[in-house]
């Protein structure tokens, strides 16, 4: 196909899009909505992955002691374990003070000082490799004088479970919408094919190649995909930018650090562009395969 043919195909696609303007617009909007949902899921997944990495890299094993535990002996034993980086003794008084700070109001803990302090003494242990944490915690639990060794496994597990369900739900909804959008593209292209049936019949007698006949319809589908893409990427970029800057400024969301690095976000947006293009092309090809005989 040469430049003149390409120009002709572009003109045909433009005319077809004008002819089916509203249907093409609705199709593009549905593509945009499905890509926004899929894109939202991808951004959520990128952020959850970051949270998980943060949690794992900052993970500390909190070794709680019985009141009669031999602290010096335990400190030595803990230090000897392979993979242990640092240990820090946190007395029950310090623990209570830290707890008060994390609540933001130490007055809430009034009356729990001294004899009434329910917290045990503890060691805070950091490790060289987050993957060693479960095994090390188990070894520490077996040491004499240790009441329990925790590293937030339940929190991490719950977080994974919840985000897993949200991800699955969004993927299903996004895929259903994407299927609906592809179906709409098939319908739009079919209408274009019907409108140009006579012309296509004549083209064959004039010696048009199969691709010359097909290409304007493929372009039409791709154009709908691209329009949906651009809208989706724009909406996602604006909304994500707002949410990210709000979270960064919000003191109550200090534990959530949204992903803002282009290296992590660019693949998401490029993936969406590719997906929208594929949806447009795929819808066109289905329609051409089903309804066009050249």
């Amino acid at each position: 196909m040469n430049f003149n043919s390409l120009r002709y195909c572009l003109r045909q696609s433009r005319e077809a899009l004008k002819r089916n303007f509203w249907l093409a617009l609705v199709t593009s909007c549905i593509i945009a909505v499905s890509l926004i949902i899929l894109g939202g899921f991808l951004l959520l997944a990128v952020n959850v992955a970051q949270v998980m990495r943060d949690v794992q890299s900052n993970v500390e094993i909190c070794v709680f002691l019985y009141d009669d535990a031999d602290q010096d002996w335990l400190a030595g034993e803990l230090q000897r374990l392979e993979g242990v980086e640092t240990i820090r003794f946190v007395s029950k008084e310090e623990g209570l003070a830290e707890f008060g700070r994390s609540l933001g109001d130490a007055a809430l803990l009034a009356g729990l000082q001294g004899e009434n302090n329910p917290l045990p003494d503890a060691f805070r242990v950091t490790v060289t490799d987050a993957e060693l944490v479960p095994a090390l915690a188990q070894t520490m639990r077996e040491l004499e004088g240790v009441e329990m060794a925790e590293y937030g496994e339940e929190f991490v597990g719950e977080l994974l479970k919840i985000t897993g369900w949200i991800n699955r739900f969004l993927v299903v909804v996004g895929l259903l919408l994407a299927l609906g959008a592809v179906f709409l593209i098939v319908t739009t292209i079919r209408l274009s094919l019907m409108a140009r049936r006579e012309e296509i019949g004549i083209m064959k007698y004039l010696g048009a190649s199969d691709w010359f006949v097909r290409f304007p319809f493929l372009l039409e589908g791709l154009a709908m995909g691209w329009l949906g893409n651009i809208v989706a990427v724009f909406v996602l970029a604006v909304v994500y930018g707002k949410v990210a800057s709000t979270l960064q400024q919000d003191a109550f969301a200090f534990f959530l650090r949204p992903v803002t690095s282009p290296e992590q976000l660019l693949p998401v947006f490029l993936g969406l562009l590719l997906l929208g293009t594929c949806m447009g092309g795929f819808g066109s090809l289905i329609s051409l395969h089903k309804f066009l005989r050249v």
């Binding site: 040469n2 003149n4 006579e198 004549i202 010696g207």
Partner: peptide
């Protein structure tokens, strides 16, 4: 005849060359 009603005489004839990718 099989002419395209929405195209002029010129466009109907030109169509045969557009299909072959000839320059304007």
């Amino acid at each position: 005849f099989r002419l395209l009603k929405q195209k002029t005489v010129f466009e109907n004839v030109a169509f045969a060359l557009e299909v072959l990718g000839k320059p304007p």
